[in-house]
Design a protein around this nucleic acid. Structure first.
Lengths: 204, 204
DNA sequence: GTCTATATTAAGATAGAC
DNA sequence: GTCTATCTTAATATAGAC
């Protein structure tokens, strides 16, 4: 307790390097497709050394998933009443689109997991995630009852915002191929389109 | 050439059983996650017998992908001018939603492939798929120029229709968990929501 | 904490009998 | 066409020296 422990600093640095490398590999290969060799190489460590920091491949993966889910839900948590409900919801969609632009690997990590049936994160989806969605759905329901936004199903509205924004991360290869566009060059067009889409839908 | 060849009938039946089993397994496990053991068992064949019909795991997978992509694009091909452009586009979205309801495994097969960078189907995306999308985008651009639909970016409109409809197949586990709903019980609500979404967007 | 070497499975694919 | 047996490789994980 008297002097600093440099070992801890090294540990933190290596753990971070591993999680960063694991995000890179898991997000493009999925859980089964990723190998510890790939992750170790990307992290600049040997495979046994990697397993010194995490007991198993599964542990790395689940730690990644649950850590990132929290960050992933920040935009939805931030949704609240500022006096302009339509603007609040459109802003939420824009923040989600920003997340897809800035953190596409996180988005693809979740996409891989959910598409394959959420075998390792189902509890967090049916628990905390569902609770948050239900809470924000009640908020939107209230706006609809007050005539502040159009009367649409809040759950399906949230699904559509997730789908349309995450599409630019999860299906990025397809989007770029069809638009003949580099990564992210089309994001301003996407923002304009989605802003129009949800503004017209929600106008009371 | 004189009498029928029962071997051919057996071959066709087994090939079909293998492709059906492979669709089931690949769509939930992804290419790397799926094993020939799983596919063989699901098809009711031994593993060597399976490899008598297809030379490799990769062959099964790519044959599935390219066969199904064709069927998958039928709704978009069917999009044409009937005199009611807004209705035509909404109908397209409804047909796509039907596909997600009726063929969720096909949707997840493609989702797995695209999310992971489309390593085995990229050529068909940047070729035939892009051509079809560009053609239908020109059609919609014409409608917008004639004032028959609102002036929105056709490519991003198509992306949003894909995203919102396929979401109900690809992220089905999450949708069901959040809605506390069984498979497909919410599809009518989804149809109503999406119909409203695109009708309001496109009204000139 | 990090390494080399290795144990242990699992999985794609083949050989060869029937 | 179908099977049993097997080859081969790759991948997770561990042992044990340093």
């Amino acid at each position: 307790m008297n002097i600093e422990r440099p070992r801890t600093r090294i540990q933190k640095k290596n753990r971070q390097a591993i999680l960063e490398a694991a995000l890179e590999v898991f997000s493009t290969e999925g859980f089964r497709g990723a190998t510890l060799d790939q992750i170790a190489q990307a992290a600049g460590l040997s495979k046994p050394n990697l397993l010194y920091y995490f007991p198993s491949k599964e542990t790395i993966y689940t730690e990644l998933l649950s850590t990132l889910l929290d960050k992933w839900l920040d935009p939805l948590r931030a949704l609240h009443d500022t006096g302009d409900p339509v603007g609040d919801i459109v802003d939420y969609a824009m923040r989600k689109l920003q997340m897809s632009r800035d953190y596409p690997r996180e988005s693809r990590l979740f996409a891989n997991e959910i598409v394959q049936g959420a075998p390792r994160i189902f509890d967090q989806i049916s628990g905390p995630l569902k609770d948050l969605v239900d809470e924000k759905s009640r908020l939107m329901r209230g706006w609809a009852n007050d005539g502040k936004i159009a009367d649409v199903d809040p759950h399906h509205l949230i699904f559509s915002i997730w789908a349309t924004t995450q599409h630019y991360a999860d299906f990025n290869v397809q989007v770029c191929a069809i638009l003949d566009s580099d990564d992210g060059a089309h994001m301003d067009d996407a923002a304009a389109f989605l802003s129009t889409l949800y503004t017209r839908l929600l106008a009371p």
